[in-house]
Nucleic acid binder design. Structure first.
Length: 923
RNA sequence: AGGCGCGUAGCUCAGUUGGUUAGAGCGCACGACUGAUAAUCGUGAGGUCGGCAGUUCAAAUCUGCCCGUGCCUACCA
């Protein structure tokens, strides 16, 4: 017997079956670097329609986590796919550099060296922050590039570049000039020891003993006569907030008892005959606490009965003559106290909010070192944390209390000084939502923005509707200073464009440090006397920085455009970057800085739990890259529904690797089949067999779909379509059927040449379709074929099918054929199960078809489609419901030693079928 | 606690305006091939569509409640 293996055109390629991505990907990155791919693409597309995905800046303070990877991969796939549409998708990555976390890190270093932050000159401190951010920018840049993310890594943007700081200040200036930037006050956690505001994360809770008081608020005016001579009793652990009291809150559904005291204990501050009101549920506890021995309480009222009542301050007769409103509030509970809550709008979050809603005044009663203002009657000059016993004494002396005590409870302290904190109102700078109609402008801008997914619009809209004015000042060091002068006399900020311009110009050349280095006179010029003005030392909220990126990146750079085509971030950025950018841009330019917004979900572990160090369920992108490769991570992204939260874990990554293998082997098979393909082989569409025409019909169908889905950023659908196409249409159908043609047919035959023409189209289609997704593998396959490193796959555009290829009728016909084919494969399998045959080539397929099926199959080369050796089909008009009946027999004849079909002509000493004999004769 | 979401086979996902027996790929099991070979092909088993209650001739799909879960409500980004 002769071995005919050498006469068969077996697939041949150097594109390996196993990928070895972790080692191969860096080589491909190097190749791209060598040919300067990104620049080359910019040059090639410089006159094309721009697509600007404006990068939301990550914070430069650590290694990348999987969320960063997710975000940048989606961005990259979108950029690359837009590029595949022929657009100029220039992408400039950036970093957010200012802010508290970096300050903390630098401070932490100081603490280790036992240095005090306050002893370091601010400019020196800022320099260290700057160096720290610069270092992490480099680290993250490397990591992003390893993911395959392409962009202008040589010239990225950052919020701390001098030009950026200058423009940020110039943007602040716009708000200053248009009158929407104003000075107001806001309660913050304040450390009297460090004389600074603290962030939530800088606060730790320790036990603290507080003086508690039960204070009397006489009813002054009420619609409910029955309570007119009663006193409302509140309980508080912060007596020092009493000067700031402007209201008392009740719960509308709480039951309150009207109580008359009839007997009291020896040291009780209560007196017989006192008429007081407290929550019914707390009556027993309170009476015991204030040593009331007996009392009458026959009447119960609902909180809602108190609406409209006005009280007097407990020290009403000693200088605190203002009205105290009795207000309804949801946060009132009967867990503790009296069921009434004393409201000092300057000294608590709930208090402030309730005060704001009811237009209460917000008195500033405490100075920055924690001392009650000296002009306060009776209590001026006392210390808020240490003198509460004295405050209680004074109040008692003036008949303002009905009880007092002490309480050991958990209380906020500074993590630096360990000293207790207070809530205090401080002057802050706000951008008004109303004076320039910023809210309305923003809402209108949102209605003109496209959201992916659409729910985002709703979410952002709700936030803009409800949000208060934007507080943009921070009492910190590492940021863009609010370079504003305040007139000492009028307390009005100086609004002079000349001064602002002078500041901006200096920031451009010297950076924002100039604000701390140069004297006021330098900025004020000759027009103003520096002695008349105080320079603000606050810095800007970092959200203002990043909210301004559109101005110093999109507007300032020649290679970008304003507004952006797309902003794309995690769903948390509804509150963050989408939000601040919208406000900033609407406030200065009257519209959103983006045409569209895309949000993705968060990454969870395999069980759907959030990732945390304590659970030990963190998947690090670096680890995935080293074990699987970046292309697998990229496949994970597009293989997931990233509009929702995504899960990741070992099994999930393995599953995606399985999918990857299918794609890789499809490319590999194409490469093998196209070995030594010559353009001259190409066959015209109309001359191709119907099967080839059908494949091209599918290509054109898919091509349109991919085009549309790219325009809608529907990466997930693109991927599903490609994968299903490779698996169902190609591997399990077209490739399987055409093996005989490809391997055994005469190389000059129309059939084989048609097949290879189609294979060529498939290769170009798949590599360009896949290039945005598995950017490394697509390049590897492309280079494996064309061996022309200058001509990267990423310089191409999507392969587009010829319009003539689309033929829905043909599509329908072949999907019918495939349905009938599945009856045949099932029947063959049954025979295989019982050992009658192995290879389907051993089979002769006998078909009885109803009229409809007969019509579909009659002019089809059935042995080819069924991959069997013989088919006999009869029309059976009696079948109607059943489309076809299939029977399988062994084909008669001998096995051709070359193509392995069973044919009658192979017998005795004849080894080859007629076809193979003919093929060999001409070669 | 409120605002915005999510919950379909072991995994990743499809499921049109409610309309036959809820689909695909991977994995798994079994088998075939040994000329895509750590590949390829075929067959098959997997689901009370988170739960309960409604609306309807008909619910994965609409409504309500519940359960689970994520993001947001920070001088974090």
């Amino acid at each position: 017997m002769t071995d005919y293996k050498d006469t068969v055109y077996l697939p041949k390629t150097d594109f390996s079956m196993r990928a070895g991505l972790p080692t191969k990907e860096p080589q491909i990155l190097k190749l791209w670097e060598e040919i300067n791919l990104f620049k080359k693409l910019r040059e090639q597309r410089k006159n094309s329609e721009p697509f600007i995905l404006h990068d939301g800046p990550p914070y430069a303070n650590g290694y990348l986590h999987i969320g960063h990877a997710l975000n940048k991969i989606i961005k990259d796939v979108i950029n690359r796919s837009q590029s595949m549409l022929g657009k100029n998708a220039n992408y400039v990555p950036g970093w957010d550099c200012h802010g508290l976390p970096i300050e903390w890190k630098i401070e932490e270093n100081y603490r280790k060296k036992k240095k005090n932050k306050d002893d370091i000159p601010i400019v020196e401190f800022r320099k260290e922050c700057r160096d720290f951010a610069a270092k992490w920018m480099d680290v993250q840049s490397e990591e992003f590039q390893r993911l395959g993310v392409y962009g202008d890594w040589e010239d990225p943007y950052s919020t701390m570049k001098y030009e950026s700081e200058a423009i940020i200040m110039s943007e602040i200036g716009k708000f200053l000039m248009n009158g929407s930037l104003y000075r107001g006050i806001k309660p913050v956690m304040w450390s009297p020891v460090e004389k600074t505001a603290l962030a939530e994360a800088e606060i730790e809770y320790h036990d603290h003993i507080s003086t508690t008081i039960f204070a009397r608020f006489p009813v002054v005016k009420t619609s409910s006569d029955i309570i007119s001579d009663f006193e409302i009793i509140i309980w508080t652990t912060t007596p020092w907030t009493m000067p700031g009291n402007r209201a008392v809150a009740y719960g509308k559904d709480i039951d309150y008892s009207l109580i008359e005291v009839t007997d009291v204990g020896e040291n009780s501050l209560a007196k017989i005959g006192d008429k007081i009101i407290i929550a019914k549920e707390l009556m027993a506890d309170v009476m015991k606490e204030i040593s009331v021995l007996s009392f009458n309480s026959s009447i119960t009222l609902k909180g809602s009965d108190f609406a409209g009542t006005i009280l007097a301050h407990p020290l009403n007769n000693y200088g605190y003559e203002h009205e105290v409103l009795l207000l309804e509030a949801e946060f009132v509970t009967t867990d503790q106290g009296t069921g009434f809550v004393h409201i000092a709008p300057g000294h608590g979050a709930d208090d402030f909010e309730l005060g704001r809603q009811n237009n209460l005044p917000i008195p500033e009663t405490v100075s920055d070192n924690g001392i009650l203002n000296s002009d306060l009657p009776l209590l001026g000059g006392l210390r808020v944390l240490k003198d509460n016993e004295i405050i209680a004494d004074i109040m008692h002396k003036h008949n303002a209390l009905i009880g007092r005590g002490r309480l050991n409870h958990s209380y906020p302290h500074s993590w630096r000084s360990k000293a207790p904190l207070v809530f205090r109102t401080t002057p802050q700078w706000f951008i008004s939502m109303t004076t320039t109609n910023l809210r309305d402008t923003s809402l209108k801008a949102l209605s003109q923005t496209t959201f992916y997914p659409p729910q985002g619009q709703n979410r952002l809209t709700k936030m803009i509707e409800d949000r208060p004015d934007w507080c943009i000042s921070r009492q910190r060091a590492w940021g863009v200073p609010l370079a504003i002068f305040v007139n000492k006399k009028t307390q009005e900020p100086l609004r002079d464009q000349e001064v602002i311009d002078r500041i901006v110009e200096v920031f451009k050349t010297d950076g924002a440090d100039a604000w701390f280095e140069k004297p006021s006179s330098f900025f004020l010029g000759s027009k103003y006397n520096p002695d008349d003005y105080e320079a603000v030392t606050d810095i800007a909220d970092v959200w203002f920085d990043s909210g301004s990126t559109h101005s110093f990146v999109l507007e300032e750079r020649d290679d970008l455009f304003w507004p952006a085509s797309l902003y794309l971030e995690g769903t948390d950025q509804h509150r963050g970057w989408f939000h601040s950018s919208l406000l900033e841009s609407c406030g200065t330019r009257g519209r959103a800085p983006y045409d569209a917004v895309l949000t993705h979900g968060f990454v969870l572990d395999q069980q759907g739990r959030k990732m945390s160090k304590s659970l030990g369920n963190i998947t690090a992108p670096q680890k995935v890259i080293n074990e699987f490769g970046a292309d697998i991570l990229r496949l994970w992204v597009v293989g997931s529904d990233y509009y929702d939260d995504l899960r990741i874990g070992k099994e999930i990554l393995i599953r995606h690797s399985d999918h990857y293998r299918r794609l890789r082997n499809t490319l590999r098979y194409l490469l093998g089949a196209l070995n030594e393909f010559d353009e001259k082989e190409k066959i015209n569409f109309t001359e191709m067999p119907e099967l080839e025409q059908w494949v091209l019909h599918r290509v054109s169908e898919l091509s349109v779909k991919i085009q549309e889905n790219t325009e809608k950023f529907n990466l997930h659908d693109i991927y599903l379509d490609i994968h299903n196409f490779c698996t169902i249409d190609l591997s399990a159908f077209y490739f399987d059927i055409r093996k005989d043609t490809l391997y055994c047919e005469d190389s000059s035959s129309v059939e084989r040449k048609s097949c290879r023409t189609v294979m060529d189209i498939l290769f170009k289609s798949l590599t360009t379709w896949l290039a945005p997704i598995i950017c490394f593998t697509a390049e590897e396959a492309w280079q494996s074929r064309y061996k022309d490193s200058e001509n990267s796959v990423h310089l191409q555009t999507y392969f587009k099918g010829d319009k003539n290829w689309k033929n829905d009728e043909l599509g329908k016909k072949w999907s019918d054929i495939r349905e009938l084919r599945s009856f045949v494969t099932t029947s063959i399998e049954e025979k295989r199960k019982v050992g009658i045959l192995g290879s389907s080539l051993q089979a002769k397929v006998l078909i009885e078809a109803n009229e409809e099926s007969f019509k579909v199959l009659q002019d089809v080369n059935l042995p080819e489609i069924f991959i069997c050796s013989d088919v006999h089909m009869d029309l059976n008009r009696n079948l109607s419901e059943t489309k076809i009946k299939v029977n399988i027999e062994l084909a008669s004849g001998g096995k051709c030693m070359r193509c392995w079909k069973i044919v009658p002509e192979v017998k005795n000493n004849i080894e080859l079928c007629n076809r193979c004999t003919k093929v060999l004769k001409f070669n």
